[in-house]
């Protein structure tokens, strides 16, 4: 191998090193350490951890709360992902058109994204509060009142889904807006000359062209549906009776309220593997339908 190539290689690796160090230290090493920890028992100063093999995983399979949060998380994903992505797309097409006060509307749609999740949750807590909350006061004008939105296991998860959609749609809208603006206006002119209707144009031109964005947004939405739990701390703390608890929130509880790092590591491994499978699946499945330019 000529020495210049070696030098080039070394040069390249040196450039990568700083990023690699951080990636390994904060992403890869913790992931592997977590996997390792999941095979050990809970450790305290008095009772050091010992190797227990798959025992933590066995415990997990019989843990009712675990299955409940998994079910909740699936419903949460089904509830938030399609709705927020569709809404984002509609909002983006709406504010991409020529309309008066366009800047204002765009800003209004984007506002929820800027607000910190904790602040949002505090606002919505008072929306949902029975009797004095915004929703109840509005409903009381029509003679309904006293709905205990967050205190009822049947409604609590839906309430959280609605809030999440409100929070997320604006964020995804920005990506769609950028994608829409990169579509050449000539396409629309040509389509109009050919006599294509607006719906036909959307279905056959716009939608396929923004497919890469959709893939990106979908992956983000899936990750978010497992990742976003900040609001639970304020709104419900996972209650009542775990009816609104999500997998990551449960992991937090196990790790920092029960101080059972081993079991928390086990749950984390499950979360990581699930997310990895979903992401890979999305890429493989959607890759054929996505046209990159």
């Amino acid at each position: 191998m000529p020495s210049s190539t070696i030098r080039n290689q070394a040069y390249g690796w040196l450039l990568l090193t700083p990023a690699a160090i951080f990636l390994i230290a904060f992403t890869h090493y913790p992931a592997i350490a977590t996997l390792g920890q999941s095979f050990f028992s809970e450790s305290t100063v008095i009772r050091p951890a010992e190797f227990v093999g798959l025992e933590n995983y066995q415990i997990m399979l019989t843990d009712e709360v675990f299955w409940k949060v998994v079910r909740n998380n699936i419903w949460y994903a089904i509830g938030t992902i399609p709705a927020s992505v569709a809404l984002a797309m509609i909002m983006a097409i709406w504010v991409n058109g020529k309309l008066a006060g366009r800047g204002l509307v765009r800003m209004a749609y984007f506002t929820p994204t800027i607000l910190p999740m904790i602040a949002v949750a505090n606002i919505w807590l008072f929306f949902y509060t029975p009797d004095i909350g915004l929703i109840d006061q509005f409903l009381s004008m029509f003679g309904f009142s006293g709905r205990n939105w967050l205190g009822n296991p049947e409604t609590v998860l839906s309430c959280i889904i609605v809030m999440t959609i409100w929070k997320e749609a604006g964020f995804f809208m920005i990506f769609y807006l950028a994608a829409l603006q990169s579509i050449s206006p000539e396409l629309e002119e040509a389509a109009r000359i050919e006599g294509a209707g607006r719906w036909y144009y959307f279905r056959r031109v716009t939608f396929p062209l923004i497919m890469p964005t959709t893939l990106f947004v979908l992956i983000n939405a899936v990750i978010n549906s497992f990742k976003l739990v900040d609001h639970l701390f304020i709104l419900t703390k996972g209650g009542p009776d775990n009816a609104s608890s999500l997998l990551l929130y449960y992991i937090y509880e196990v790790a920092f309220s029960f101080f059972d790092e081993a079991y928390a590591a086990t749950l984390t491994v499950v979360l990581l593997v699930t997310l990895a499978i979903i992401a890979i699946g999305q890429f493989l499945l959607m890759d054929k339908r996505v046209h990159y330019r």
């Binding site: 004095i132 909350g133 967050l150 205190g151």
Partner: peptide
Amino acid sequence: MPANTIEWGTLRQNFLE
């Protein structure tokens, strides 16, 4: 008392109102 769970965080406001 209302049925189901009652929120700790907003209770004071309920009382004050």
